[in-house]
Structure formats: structure tokens, C-alpha cells
Amino acid sequence: MTTAAEVLELARARGVMIATAESCTGGLIVGRLTDVPGSSDAVDRGFVTYSNAAKIEMLGIRPETLEAHGAVSEEIAAEMAKGALARSAAGIAVAVTGIAGPGGSEHKPEGRVCFGIANAWGVRTETVEFGPLGRAQVRAATVDHALELLAESLRA
């Protein structure tokens, strides 16, 4: 598992700052990064956009994308990541939107999280089905996976 300190070192080596756009994690990713002393030279900002209105206002998510795909979708994760990149001094941004639980539906079950990662070369998305692990465990798994995605992209 990649640590926050390793992600920060990779960002420093690439000369880029990191931004996060978080829904289901409520700021836990940027919190993990900024738990590391000295992180201010590699972390620019974190957007906590829990509501759809916040996603639209803070990240520029298109209402028509929300209408067509819903908040928990790779399309929204992509727009969140691109919005965070455009509205920050960061060179890489990770976005997460999902169903931490309890609850969910047949079409969007508990434990589904959509990820987006954006940099100067574009945006990549993926969906992970963590399953009904419980709210805290889904959120923790999401933070760990987001750090892995950041590290992979920074190594590329």
C-alpha cells in the first residue's frame, strides 16, 4: 500500500502540486496527505463537494451530466477531477464520488466508488466495488485507492 508520504515525494519529484475533489470521503484524502509534516509544498487544496450544488458551484460539474448519469458515475468523477485541476494550482487532481453506506440501490450498491484522476495529459476514470463493508471501511478503502491512483499517475 502506498503511503501519503510516498505520494508527496512523487509529487515533489515531478514538481507538481496535488488537489483533491471529494464527495463520499468528505476530505479524508486531503486530510491523509496533510497529516504528513511539510506537505504544504506538494498539496495545493482539497474540494469537499458533498452536495450536487457544491459539485456544480465549486468544480463546474454540468447539471446535464448529473441528470444523465447521477452523482455516482465515472462521468461525474471525470468532471470533478478536471474541475479541481482547472480551479487550482495543482498539476494532478484525484476525485472520488460513491456510496459509502449504509444503503445504496440495486443500480448503485453500497461500496461503489467512482474515481477520476486528471493531469496535463488528460483524465482517467474507474469504478471500484468495495462491497457493503460499512461506511468507515468503504471510506478508508477509498482513501487508500485514491493514494494508489495518485502514485501510479505520478510514476507514469
Rank of each mutant, 00 (worst) to 15 (best):
M1N: 07
A5T: 14
E9D: 12
R12P: 03
R12A: 13
R14S: 12
V16Y: 00
T20Q: 06
S23P: 03
S23Q: 06
G27E: 03
L28E: 00
L28P: 00
L28G: 04
I29M: 04
L33D: 00
L33A: 06
T34A: 10
V36R: 07
P37Y: 07
P37R: 11
P37Q: 06
P37S: 11
G38D: 01
A42H: 07
G46C: 08
G46N: 04
G46V: 03
Y50A: 06
S51P: 14
S51E: 04
A54S: 09
E57V: 03
L59W: 05
G60H: 13
R62F: 03
R62G: 05
E64S: 15
T65Y: 11
L66K: 06
E67G: 15
G70L: 08
V72R: 15
S73C: 12
I76D: 04
A78D: 00
A78Y: 02
E79T: 11
M80T: 07
K82T: 01
G83M: 01
A86V: 08
S88R: 14
A90W: 04
A90N: 12
G91D: 00
T97K: 09
G98H: 13
I99F: 14
G101W: 09
G101N: 12
G103Y: 08
G104N: 13
G104T: 10
G104M: 11
S105F: 08
H107L: 01
P109I: 13
V113F: 10
N119G: 13
W121I: 02
G122P: 03
V123P: 02
V123W: 00
R124D: 05
R124A: 15
E129M: 14
G131S: 14
L133Q: 09
L133S: 09
L133V: 09
L133R: 11
G134V: 13
R135S: 13
T142M: 06
T142A: 07
A146K: 02
L149E: 07
L154A: 09
R155N: 11
A156F: 10
A156K: 15
